[in-house]
Amino acid sequence: MTLTETLTGKSPRTAVAALARDVVKIYGRGDTAVRALDGATLSIPAGRFTAVMGPSGSGKSTLMHALAGLDTVDEGQVLIGDTDLAGLSERQRTLLRREHVGFVFQSFNLVPTLTAAENIELPLTLAGRRADQAWIDELVEMLGLADRLLHRPAELSGGQQQRAAVARALAARPRIVFADEPTGNLDSRAGEALLGFLRHAAHELGQTIVMVTHDATAAAYADRVVFLADGRVVGELPDPTVPEILSRMAGLGSSARSGKEK
């Protein structure tokens, strides 16, 4: 148990931050219909850093969008905390995202017309909530953005932009943060720094994080890797290492191929 967990009295290892059960998502109709998710079931434990991996077309982004309330599902159930997304309107889903979900995208994370500080506080200001200044200051300090706060995104490096995006994702103390290939556009040093921080946020701050990636090095920073293929969860790896991940991925590739041959 970390210090933060002790202080807040949470026992994250037993709680579930988000849950997808037998989720089916179909794009298109008739002959051209594609089952992007085909009965995927995944539980995201609170306070941990989970990586989702899979070959392209495996449905990992779709699963993340469904879990984040960005998209609806055709069958199955999605829960964020105790809330079932199925019964929510578009507006209710928006409000839920604003309160409980943080996002980091691969690129274009910041509104170009707002400064870094304004971008970080954006979800709070949109919700009309007052920012917890001490928390924001702590985040900014940890991410090394203190002297970049008044700059606009165009004046920040790629790494700084992504770190600002992480600060924004964490600013509202969401129940869960989704990161979609957050290091995809970064050089390796900036990428490592970012991944290190995400890991730190999970372990030291108790932040639940889900990261979608196809990069084994990035996934190795996570506490657990979940593997997806053909719209289903096909396995997982606790406390992963790079070689383990790579061998599992290679296996997925062949199983996907053999699946097609059937």
């Binding site: 995202r97 996002f103 995208f105 949109l126 919700a127």
Partner: peptide, 16 residues
């Protein structure tokens, strides 16, 4: 489009 998508993702409502 992307900027609007981002804003919507981080919680801007349709009304806003």
């Amino acid at each position: 489009t992307r900027e609007i998508g981002l804003l919507r993702a981080v919680g801007m409502t349709g009304a806003q």
